[in-house]
Nucleic acid binder design. Structure first.
Lengths: 243, 243
DNA sequence: ATAAGTTTGTATCAAAATGATGCAATCGAC
DNA sequence: GTCGATTGCATCATTTTGATACAAACTTAT
């Protein structure tokens, strides 16, 4: 199918979606000691946006978020959590979508379903960076990771959505022990610490961090040690199976 | 206006609402050392429900929640916070609404807007019990307070919504120091402690509770003491103005 | 082979926060 | 005044957290 055919199909699925409701995903990844967010970019308008989509009438909003996540990253079984619903009357203007559609030869009337008011249910996802294959959607041409400190201006209220997601993630980090989802299955204490330091944006004392993590008794030492570097090899950990 | 006229008017306002989106409010109050929730009751069907409503196309979801809260309690300027959005495909059946409408002489076709799928944005409110005048809406005939430990079976997924609201409130209690909103403007340390004990559902040591609250430096002693009881009169406190 | 340079794992001590108990102060009832 | 009740707060013990130190384990340079 050509892009234009994809878009035509999409525009025709309007009636299959739950009206007024959209889902946006803030997908966090961790790479080279930096917290990243997956963004989409529209080629014609150079605009950036969060991966998002609509909710089919026969799926739950959680399922919609899972589906969108899978479509944009190729991964399933991901840590995904709803964090806030954004319901302002005017969340921004839709010029970007109009322009994008226009560039594909579709002129949307002002009362087109895609240009109506939507509330957006925000979800954040924590993914293993190495397992993700960023995949653009039919609106966008590029999907890529952006450092949390260098997020460009996004469409609509998406910058605010990212901010709120980050705030929530910080709050949840200790409470729900959720950070591990950003690492690969096994990791060193050093990697875990730098993850925490990046998210919380502050330095932690190594000895105390280690003590705290071990005292929670959720980490399991893998009977294998690192090799290569010119120093004592660190233990490698994984999350204990909760039997 | 007669009740039936009210309902007729309501049924006709369908097009003014944002489709698929509803708001439900868990209104907490504190009375006689018990945590209460404001519920509505439908006379004909004996069914209970949370106060809720729909979002006008020209108001934000926050504004809708504030409005609904005001309509059901008569109070404004209330602590109100969104806590979760409930987006299952099938959140329960609408028989109660059908029966209620039917009892007023309105037979709804199965594709009536009121019987469509709605997602519900949940808000919880903390109100000063003494200032509230429970007011039924057009669906219901009675509005009243129910002890949190004796919530009857509610329509749809409203029991789950109450549970989630309570969980969130417990989490937020320390983090956001939000409990004061459930008390009148001035209160004793004893009242504050029993509020905390009720919400957290556990006993707290009096001396340590007092120490903790005072150390936060958000309480101000009112230069007036209690009277009446046969013991040392407690100080009366209020929240410091944050200048 | 040995020394040097790293990072890791953990012990140890100090400081702060929390848990538990006790007691003097202040009221009304008698 | 004495009694019972409750308050405000001090004081101790215990636990948690913050900060520092040091031996162990590895590679590289000599």
């Amino acid at each position: 199918m050509t892009p234009s055919q994809n878009i035509k199909t999409f525009l025709e699925t309007g009636p299959e979606y739950l009206p007024s409701v959209s889902v946006d995903c803030v997908i966090f990844g961790f790479h080279e000691r930096q917290l990243k967010v997956l963004l989409l970019e529209f080629k014609h308008t150079k605009a950036f946006a969060l991966p998002g989509g609509f909710v089919f009438k026969d799926e739950s909003t959680d399922e919609a978020a899972t589906r969108i996540l899978w479509e944009r990253t190729g991964v399933k079984d991901i840590y995904l959590e709803q964090f806030h619903t954004f319901g302002e009357q005017n969340r921004g203007n839709w010029d970007v979508h109009k322009a994008t559609m226009s560039s594909h030869g579709f002129e949307l009337e002002t009362n087109h379903w895609l240009l109506q008011r939507f509330i957006s249910i925000g979800y954040y996802a924590l993914v293993d960076f190495s397992k993700v294959i960023p995949t653009p959607d039919i609106f966008s041409d590029i999907g890529g990771w952006h450092d949390i400190h260098q997020i460009p201006t996004l469409i609509l209220d998406h910058n605010r959505i990212v901010e709120k997601a980050l705030t929530t993630l910080r709050l949840m980090l200790d409470y729900k022990l959720v950070g591990f989802n950003l690492l690969s299955e096994t990791f060193t204490m050093n990697e875990l610490q730098s993850l925490y330091e990046t998210i919380l944006d502050k330095k932690l004392l190594r000895a105390n961090f280690q003590r705290k993590m071990l005292s929670m008794e959720i980490l399991e030492r893998v009977e294998k040690k690192f090799s290569g570097k010119a120093h004592k090899p660190p233990y490698v950990y994984r999350i204990k199976k909760t039997t």
